[in-house]
Nucleic acid binder design. Sequence first.
DNA 1: CATAAATTAGTCAATCCTGACTATTCAATT
DNA 2: AATTGAATAGTCAGGATTGACTAATTTATG
Lengths: 174, 174
Amino acid sequence: MYRELLLLGVLRQRQMHGYELHEFINRDLAFCTDIKKPTAYHLLQKMAEQGWITEIPEPNPPTNRPPRTVYQLTEAGEATFLDYLRQNLATYSPSYFNGDVGIAFIEALPSDEACALLEQRKIALTVALNALHVPHGEAHTKGGMSLIIEHQKRHLSTELAWLDEVISRIRTQP
Amino acid sequence: MYRELLLLGVLRQRQMHGYELHEFINRDLAFCTDIKKPTAYHLLQKMAEQGWITEIPEPNPPTNRPPRTVYQLTEAGEATFLDYLRQNLATYSPSYFNGDVGIAFIEALPSDEACALLEQRKIALTVALNALHVPHGEAHTKGGMSLIIEHQKRHLSTELAWLDEVISRIRTQP
DNA sequence: CATAAATTAGTCAATCCTGACTATTCAATT
DNA sequence: AATTGAATAGTCAGGATTGACTAATTTATG
């Protein structure tokens, strides 16, 4: 349901056509989701059926290109947006870390190898963390966006610290 | 792919039938995934087709009940398990927090209301964090499982600290 | 003891998701 | 000017996922 909230929230700022919307999400909201293009189109269609958005054929269709469909929030859409937003803010929905699955079975490998593999993971994590210090979209500097980047930063730091703990525990035990 | 790793890892410890396996995962490995029952059965079927596990009709079928199918790891399954485990340990796969979506649009609400809603989220988070201090399965105390609980603990603490930061920033700004 | 409620075990139809594809336009290179 | 490569815009078939269901057995309750 957070996907609908995301789409409504973006369309609330300004109307867009499908492709544009997907690009925007995958560039500026990549921390929030990795929604795929066909999924975005599918959700837009469903939301149009619900009456939350209207599908407008492109205003001035440039005769040569196939006409694009522009999506625009309706009043019902605005109401749904606010409803979903309140629900989202008021609740905590747990996240799953698929990296944990490997840790659960880590004893299946000799500890030397396990440590070497986790060192690789650490490098990947460090790369992700460093990439955060260079914000690359102007949308990132304003509003809730900076809060999300701060969140991501704290999360990755915590991951790194925990990984160190894991590695050292494995080194000192069998 | 972490779902396959999870199922293989569990079946590696001992053979099980589908329902049992799903129960086990949702009880003792709830931190790792919330895999649904039909999905588990579907994956088991696919893995049987791959030759990673074998479907054995229940050894001594109690004449009255419909016979259950027991799943058992093959050698190919063991090899796949180790392969997937190494990949999982060596890489970092990012997690998405759908609570972030609401934060991204938090300016759509008056800051008073936003704070009140986030206080509710904080309560839910605190409940989740406190529940962690009471491990309820014996499987939790040994092996990688305690590492995962530690992970969860640190993650939730970070979430809580960040939420406090968010709330205070909203209070002091427009 | 009879009945209700819970647990066990699994299936299925409907929906959701996405890799791979089509097709046009724009930019750069030869 | 023709060719290549990238960006734009979207679609579709096939596979993944799950809410809701069936049905048997066990446990609890009056």
